[in-house]
């Protein structure tokens, strides 16, 4: 019986393996992207030391650097999960393979589980390399940080970004020419309101209210508490549970929205590759 769990797991692994092959074949691009990401993270982090230099003795540059490092790394990790989910749908549209993927006898949950499992693993490795370079360059001391707590908060936030990614992948599914670019608006809005590079308290009240709806807000707050203040699990919990709750709602919601979009595409003939 095809629908058995084993076969669905095997089918799910198809996406992990395929994406790994894509990374291998596009290795030069991945190297360029890694170099860009490292340079970008370092540039943002140096703002911390820059502020100390500009602002004088009253500013703790080392704290600012760590604050910005956490922001840039968490953001890199979460946005990578998002982009790996949406970009692959865009690539499938571009290559014309989307019809073969959607014609396969698999549940959409199976499809997305494989897709997102790869996204999470690869994003962790990618972010880990950036973290290593940053720690070495800035000689950051994380020996007093609650690394386990920080990781748990990141994982809790992953789930919600998977859901947001699945919703975002509807754009390249329905708009093959500009859909991938359209997903940037989702990420840009989350970047604005989530307090990636600044505390959300500096935002106008309307944006502060919006920040409560962003899972990244809780992830960033939790990871900063874990790494900067060595906060114990009990203190991290108020940030973990909203991120998890959002994830538990976002993943089924994402699958539901994707299902609607798939049905719409099948009704209107939008899956067919043009050009």
């Amino acid at each position: 019986m095809f629908a058995s769990t084993t076969q669905q797991i095997r089918a799910s692994y198809a996406f992990v393996e395929r994406n790994a092959y894509l990374v291998k074949r596009y290795w030069s691009w991945e190297l360029v992207w890694l170099s860009y990401s490292i340079a970008n993270s370092l540039s943002v982090s140096y703002i911390g030391l820059g502020m100390e230099s500009i602002g004088g003795q009253g500013i703790d540059g080392r704290y600012l650097v760590l604050y910005l490092v956490v922001g840039t790394l968490v953001w890199r990790y979460l946005s990578m999960i998002f982009y790996w989910i949406t970009d692959i749908i865009g690539l499938e549209r571009w290559e014309g393979t989307i019809e073969y993927t959607l014609m396969a006898p698999i549940h959409r949950l199976t499809h997305m589980a494989g897709q997102t499992l790869f996204a999470v693993i690869y994003s962790m490795l990618f972010t880990g390399v950036i973290l290593a370079v940053t720690v070495l360059l800035f000689k950051l001391d994380l020996s007093q940080a609650n690394l386990l707590g920080g990781t748990l908060v990141m994982l809790a936030g992953s789930l919600s970004f998977i859901g947001v990614g699945i919703v975002g992948s509807v754009l390249p599914l329905l708009f093959p020419e500009r859909g991938s670019q359209m997903t940037h608006v989702i990420i840009a809005l989350l970047l604005l309101v989530s307090g990636v590079y600044y505390p959300i308290e500096v935002l106008p009240m309307a944006l502060q209210r919006m920040s409560m709806l962003s899972p990244a807000t809780y992830v960033l707050r939790g990871v900063r508490a874990a790494l900067l203040e060595n906060a114990p699990m009990a203190r991290l919990w108020p940030d973990i549970w909203p991120a998890m709750l959002m994830g538990l709602a976002a993943v089924p919601a994402g699958l539901w929205v994707f299902g609607l979009a798939e049905r719409y595409a099948k009704r209107t003939g939008k899956l067919h590759r043009n050009g």
Partner: peptide, 25 residues
């Protein structure tokens, strides 16, 4: 289909493995 749709960067083996796994092989 008339247009052979594949991940063009991947090899025949990699593309076909993907297809085979999707069907539970």
């Amino acid at each position: 289909s008339v247009e052979a749709s594949f991940f063009k960067k991947l090899s025949p083996m990699e593309n076909l493995l993907y297809g085979a796994r999707l069907y539970g092989l």
